[in-house]
C-alpha cells in the first residue's frame, strides 16, 4: 500500500469520512479520489476501521442522567463581605498608628538638631540649610529661638551650606564637632520635622 503525495487530501480523508468538510472541500477530495488509487485504498481502510471502532460498550443513559443534579447558579458576593470590612478596618488602624509614630519620632529628631547644622525642607527650592561657623555665629545669629511650630513637608532636595565665615576659621575642636554633626545628619530618617523657616541655631554650649 503506497501513500499519495497529496498530503492535504490524505489529511482530510477522516473529515470526508465523517462528513465534516464543507461543499468546496468535499468536491476537491472527491475529484482527487477519482484519479488516485492510493487515496481510494486509504479511504477504504479508514471506512473499515471506522466501522470496527464504532462499536461502543453499552452505557446506562438513564442512570447517568439521573445522577446529574439540577443547575445551581454561582453565588455572586458584593464588595462588603464581612471579612473585607474587617480587613479595611485593620488597614485603617495600622495606617493611623504609623502616622502617629512617625510624628512622634520626627518630634524627637527635631529636638536633637545640632546647634551647628539646620536642615530645611520645603516644597520649593528655598534657603539652603546652614552651617554656622562658631566664630561668626554669636555676631550674626540670635540666640536659639523658643520652640518653633514644626511641620512635616516632603521636599525634593536637601542641601548643606556654610552660612558665613570660613571653615579655615574653625578651631580643631570646632571642626571635629562640625564633622560629627554632619555625620549625624546622614543618619537622619527620611521623614523628619521641618521648621517653617530655616533654623538658625544660636551659640554652642560653652562657646
Amino acid at each position: 500500500m503506497t501513500d499519495c503525495g497529496y498530503g492535504n487530501v490524505r489529511d482530510a480523508l477522516p473529515d470526508y469520512l465523517n462528513d465534516r468538510l464543507d461543499t468546496a472541500h468535499r468536491r476537491e477530495v472527491e475529484s482527487h479520489l477519482a484519479g488516485c488509487d492510493a487515496c481510494r485504498e486509504e479511504l477504504s481502510l479508514l471506512r473499515t476501521l471506522h466501522v470496527t471502532m464504532r462499536r461502543a460498550p453499552a452505557v446506562n443513559v438513564d442512570a447517568i442522567a439521573a445522577a446529574i443534579p439540577a443547575y445551581r447558579a454561582p453565588v455572586r458576593r458584593g464588595w462588603a463581605t464581612p471579612w473585607r470590612v474587617a480587613a479595611a478596618i485593620v488597614a485603617l488602624a495600622a495606617g493611623g498608628t504609623s502616622i502617629a509614630l512617625l510624628r512622634s519620632h520626627a518630634s524627637v529628631q527635631r529636638e536633637d538638631v545640632s546647634p551647628y547644622v539646620t536642615a530645611t525642607r520645603t516644597r520649593e527650592p528655598g534657603p539652603a540649610p546652614q552651617v554656622v561657623a562658631p566664630s561668626t555665629r554669636a555676631a550674626e545669629v540670635p540666640a536659639r529661638p523658643a520652640p518653633r511650630s514644626a511641620t512635616i513637608q516632603p521636599a525634593p532636595t536637601r542641601e548643606l551650606a556654610i552660612a558665613s565665615g570660613s571653615i579655615g576659621d574653625l578651631s580643631d575642636a570646632e571642626l571635629a564637632a562640625l564633622v560629627d554633626d554632619i555625620e549625624s545628619l546622614e543618619a537622619t530618617p527620611a521623614a523628619e520635622v521641618e521648621s517653617a523657616e530655616p533654623l538658625s541655631v544660636g551659640a554652642q554650649e560653652g562657646t
Binding site: R54, R55, A56, P57, V59, V61, I64, A65, I68
Partner: peptide
C-alpha cells in the same frame, strides 16, 4: 447524555 455517552464510551 444521549448525544455523547456512546462516543465517550467508545473513546474510553
Amino acid at each position: 447524555v444521549e448525544r455523547h455517552a456512546s462516543a465517550l464510551a467508545r473513546f474510553l
